[in-house]
Design a protein around this nucleic acid. Structure first.
Lengths: 108, 108
DNA sequence: CTCGTATGTAAGTTATGGCTTACGGTAAGT
DNA sequence: ACTTACCGTAAGCCATAACTTACATACGAG
């Protein structure tokens, strides 16, 4: 399961900030690093992780390297989520029902 | 944004295994720790993190403590995902279009 | 061809996280 | 009341990850 990488990648706040920034559109590294609380090399390293997780893609544009969001990584997370969403809700519903059942004739 | 906690919680493989195990139904800690590659205290610590992330709830049942899935945490992740899903796809689509545009009359 | 821009990578430091063992507390059974 | 089962937490260890500075590389302008 490679969704491991996607989850781990989005776990870091700084990395999620980078990713969210790219949601507004493709950006080169330097521009992306501006306004970030960490250095440019740090952003570059984060982008590498995001890329390996299938969350972003990059292309060369002259001397610059433009990064943009890749739906693939998000798709993996969505797939995992969809798989557990229903049974999580069902398990929760069943539990609520059990509780109300138990406290039905509890204190007469 | 407390979704930070949910993402970080699900980033760890062991913790996701614990969570996925609970998707089949509520379990006490001891039973939950059986078959896990880590010790019972480790599972207990993971449960604490999952609880703080709103991914599980716990209730006392005699001397045992039963954990079950809490949809709240998953809901936060789903909300975050839904928010980026559309614009991620749109950004990707726009990029594909740009590429095909560029290579239209490239090599006549 | 040289220089400035833009980026990735290596090396090293520090913080964080996950694990184990040991211990303390609570509940149930005898 | 004493004992046993079940669990959370503290302490400490070790691996990993995030960050910095310094360096190497590629591209484009002049």
């Amino acid at each position: 399961m490679a969704n491991n990488l996607a989850f781990a990648a989005l776990a870091d706040p700084t990395r999620r900030a980078v990713f969210e920034r790219l949601a507004d559109g493709p950006l080169p590294v330097g521009e992306l690093a501006e306004g970030m609380p960490v250095s440019r090399p740090a952003v570059s390293q984060h982008l590498k992780v995001l890329k390996e997780a299938g969350l972003v893609t990059d292309r060369a544009q002259g001397a610059r390297r433009v990064y943009q969001i890749d739906p693939k990584g998000l798709g993996q997370i969505r797939a995992w989520l969809d798989r557990f969403w229903d049974e999580a809700l069902e398990a929760f519903r069943a539990e609520v029902e059990r509780e109300t059942q138990d406290s039905e004739g509890e204190e007469p």
